[in-house]
């Protein structure tokens, strides 16, 4: 009768009403659709890398070029007193993951609004956000050989803390997912969200220890204590400290890492909650 509604295989089976499902059943629905998510991420990477021979180069060119510019400005023009040596490695170790953060959060404003498939498929709506987070995350992973090349080129030693990159990636995934969920919902409802986010991201770039080190903030007595506290509250601060600690162990500070973990979990909880609350309205507006 009801034909082959193989469990989980169908695209829209089930009950729907404004009484929204809890996070557990939404997570379960997402897990059932993991194959589709994988397909979407692969599609994004394919479009990004297969179309031009320079595909791979393009994806790393932006952070690499920015790195080169800062490296030139701060080593040749200014007398640099911040960060550690080799400065280019120090900077890229922070810039590459920030690039993931920035691209995913910027893209989130149009992740739902700009996706035509939202209007024709009943996939869990979180998929369009996760797909963005993961494909930008994959681009980050693909850029790691560049970092390795600089480390080898400078014969820079690596300590055991390099394994901290794994928790760093996990925490960053949680953080970026939470922010992207929040921004994708707001971006579908209000027209200037993407512009506001772009400005905020530029601000975040300088407000996070990327072109300088965490130690330049923590040990800087010219900065008032409340500003140093704000640095610690910024979840990207701790995440970048984790990424860097394999090459620069002194960058590791427990308090910023703990703050990152808490901040990222809060971001996911708030972002997802808003996303669920606004879902019905968003679907009407797009």
């Amino acid at each position: 009768m009801t034909a082959s509604s193989a469990a989980g295989g169908d695209s829209a089976a089930g009950s729907r009403s404004r009484i929204v499902d809890g996070p557990a059943s939404r997570a379960a629905a997402l897990w059932r659709k993991r194959r589709v998510l994988l397909l979407l991420v692969r599609r994004d990477l394919k479009v990004r890398y297969s179309d031009s021979i320079l595909g791979y180069l393009w994806s790393i060119l932006d952070p690499l070029l920015m790195g080169m510019i800062y490296w030139f400005v701060f080593t040749a023009i200014f007398r640099r007193s911040v960060g550690e040596d080799p400065y280019i490695l120090f900077m890229l170790a922070g810039m590459l993951p920030f690039h993931w953060f920035q691209n995913a959060v910027n893209g989130a404003a149009t992740a739902i609004k700009g996706e035509r498939l939202v209007r024709s498929t009943a996939l869990p709506r979180e998929i369009w956000v996760l797909r963005l987070v993961f494909s930008k995350g994959m681009e980050y992973l693909f850029s790691l050989p560049v970092l390795a090349a600089f480390a080898i080129g400078y014969l820079h030693g690596v300590s055991w803390q390099i394994v901290l990159m794994i928790p760093a990636i996990l925490i960053q995934t949680v953080l970026v997912t939470g922010l992207a969920l929040l921004i994708s919902a707001l971006g579908a409802l209000a027209r200037d969200v993407d512009r506001v986010i772009r400005i905020l991201m530029r601000f975040m770039f300088y407000a996070t220890p990327i072109i300088y080190g965490l130690n330049d903030v923590v040990r800087n007595r010219h900065i008032p204590q409340f500003l140093r506290d704000i640095y610690a509250v910024n979840p990207m601060t701790g995440i970048i400290a984790l990424y860097r600690s394999g090459f620069f162990p002194l960058e590791f500070h427990w308090h910023v890492v703990i703050s990152s973990v808490i901040g990222s979990i809060v971001a996911l909880a708030v972002g997802w909650w808003v996303f669920i609350r606004l879902e019905g309205t968003v679907l009407k507006e797009i």
Partner: peptide
């Protein structure tokens, strides 16, 4: 709305 089967849209 309750559906007892998948949809081909």
């Amino acid at each position: 709305v309750t559906l007892r089967g998948g949809v081909a849209p």
